[in-house]
Amino acid sequence: MSWISGFFRGSSRKLHLILILLFGIALCIPSLPLAMYISEGILQTFYLPFATIKNSVEDLRHVHVENSRLRESLVDANVKLSMLEEAGRENIRLRAVLGFEPPTGYSLLPARVIAVTGDRIPMQAVINRGYLDGVALNEPIINEEGLLGKVVSVSHSFSTVQLLTDPTNRVAVRISESREMGIAKYVMSQGLIVDNVPYQGDVKQGDLVVSSGLGGLYPPGLVVGTVIAVERPKQEPFLSIRLAPAADFNSLDELFILREKK
């Protein structure tokens, strides 16, 4: 800069000021493309690196915003998809229920499970029907697959169902083919079994087990399960029969309260 200072000494100083001012005036003339040329050079040299950085940062910010928006719509779509899938499953279940007929002399009151309790396996279920709907104690609960249990407590709008998987629940049953009678109950170590069937009884794997109607609690003919194993233990007066439950107690949803017609 010392050479510049040198120029500014004396008359050359005024000359340079005049030159700068003339240069400024020349830049003011729109017909001269001088300003455009200078502008282009400065933009390329000084502005472009910063503009590139700024654009990159803005692009990144847009990508981030877009990413957040897409994540939200993905979650939304997944929720809708789950709801649609659930509606589809419900549709299939309800179609199966449509053809379901109650035993003669009984009517069906549909209900929904709103809670299930039990340790390891479901033992009790709370349903959305109470005494306002006319539900009474000990009424049988079934679905299109078979017998589920009975009502053990009733409140204003809800009832509690004791499922067949509750070890304290007992059902008088009959082997549908041989008409042998017994008592079905759930044993934690073995699952659903039929007890009290005489040693000489004619029971084989695949036999259907239905409620016998004895005891007056359950009407006869409700499917309880299918025989999956028969053992004849020595020194025991009864057969050891294991059942596969007709109903899937782990996926209870819609069910019916079986009510005697008056």
């Binding site: 200072s5 830049l27 003011c28 729109p30 300003a35 455009m36 000084f46």
Partner: peptide, 30 residues
């Protein structure tokens, strides 16, 4: 700084700051 540095730097700075608006470049320089 000195007068020389002042006017020359003012010229350069005006050119850079008005590069985005070439129509006002001459005015900014002045």
């Amino acid at each position: 700084r000195s007068e020389a540095e002042t006017v020359w730097f003012a010229l350069a700075a005006a050119l850079v700051m008005s590069a985005g608006t070439p129509l006002s470049m001459g005015f900014q320089v002045l």
